[in-house]
Amino acid sequence: DRIFMTRTEALEFLLKAHQTAVDKIGHPSHKQTPADHAAIEALDRLLLDVRARRVDQFQINASAAQIIVTD
């Protein structure tokens, strides 16, 4: 599946995904793992790359739809 978004929409989408990941590892019942921190770092890099126009398409994980940034 493909989803087309403007750059602004894609950045909002990534910010929400980032916040969800941060909230998940901050929850008291969740045991933090290196994979959790790696996922947040990957989202940080992706946010910067989309914002800087170095990336025009991405996929958060293998089961997610491919996001295509349109400007």
Rank of each mutant, 00 (worst) to 15 (best):
Q19A: 12
K31T: 12
V50Q: 00
D23P: 01
V22F: 07
H30L: 04
F4I: 09
D36W: 05
S29Y: 08
L43R: 00
T8P: 13
Q57V: 14
I40F: 04
A17V: 11
T6S: 14
D44Y: 15
Q32F: 13
R53Q: 12
T20E: 14
Q66V: 15
D1G: 09
S63A: 11
L46K: 01
G26R: 14
H37E: 12
A10F: 01
V50T: 01
A38V: 11
D1E: 08
L47D: 01
A52T: 11
Q32K: 10
T70D: 08
E9S: 05
A17I: 08
E9T: 03
E41A: 12
K16Y: 09
G26Q: 12
A10Q: 00
R53W: 11
H37C: 08
N61R: 05
F4L: 07
S63K: 11
T8D: 15
Q19G: 04
D49G: 08
V50F: 03
V55E: 02
L46H: 01
I40Y: 04
R2L: 10
H30C: 05
A62F: 07
R54C: 05
Q66T: 05
K31E: 15
R54G: 03
A65E: 11
Q59K: 10
A64N: 13
F4C: 07
D49R: 03
D23N: 08
D36N: 05
I67M: 03
H30G: 06
H37P: 03
D56I: 10
A62I: 10
A17G: 02
G26P: 03
S63D: 12
I3E: 03
R7F: 09
R51E: 12
D44R: 14
V55G: 01
R45S: 07
A64D: 12
I40P: 02
M5F: 05
A65T: 12
T33R: 05
V50P: 00
R7M: 11
P28N: 10
L15M: 12
F13Y: 09
D44P: 01
H27L: 10
E41Y: 10
A64Q: 13
F58C: 01
Q66W: 15
V69C: 03
D36K: 03
H27G: 07
L47A: 05
R53P: 01
H27S: 14
F58W: 01
